[in-house]
Amino acid sequence: MEEKPVSPVLKVLAAFGFLFLLAPVLIVVPLSFSNDVFMSFPPSGYSLRWYIAIGANAKLLDAFLFSVKLASLVTVVNILIAVPASYALIRKAPFGADAIMSLLTAPLLLPTIVLGLALLIVMARAGYLATPQGIFLAHLVVTLPYALRVIATALSTLPIAVEEAAATLGASPLSVFFRITLPMLMPGIVAAAALSFLVSFDEVVLSLFMNGPKVTTLPVELYHHVESRADPLVAAASVLLVVFTLAVVIIVDRSLGLAKTFVK
């Protein structure tokens, strides 16, 4: 396609837009190396003190570990639930499959503040408020629709003839699923897993409603920290978070690329 000349006015406006969009992320990097006790930008001096401070902050480290564990468990359970459900809805296409799909993805449409409150009330009554179980269920509810969407879409694009070929060659439905469908579905599963993990890991609103003294996620801990104090600690934590998120994305991209070349 021929390159279209872009007017300089548009270039300037777009550049401003990008700068505005990336400003809060970009500013955090130099701030994290601040040597000041309080937040001030630009910093009066640079050091690694806030990174060291994170290492000494048990609350933050515990919250990070809890978040990783929670997101991992949520991801695994998501996949275990979403794959069979997608299979039933796409391959078995029962009556009303579209309606069931809409209902199952409906939690995405509800604002998390409303869902958070709704869950808070039932969990409190059931005695699961501020428990790992409660926060786990909350995360499951908001991440499952993503996993279902991604996996169902991936499954619906798989050529069904390949599965039929396996059946004619003597593979029982179970063998077809494990030997053919599942391996071909792998890129979709990896994508769904990544999305589940990142959504769970970054989730703040539901966690704020469900958290408790011993059950707190990293975003919640950061939120409380920002709310109560203005120091560069969160900047250092943010940089580490960005690096962590990037690492997840790169790993997924690699394994997705791998899975794609594998299946193509």
């Binding site: 003839a161 039929e164 053919i180």
Partner: peptide, 17 residues
């Protein structure tokens, strides 16, 4: 899967993996 027929598909339907 118990019919014992060999079917060649228009799209070949080979197992990509």
């Amino acid at each position: 899967f118990r019919r014992d027929m060999g079917l060649v598909f228009q799209s070949y339907a080979l197992f990509p993996h």
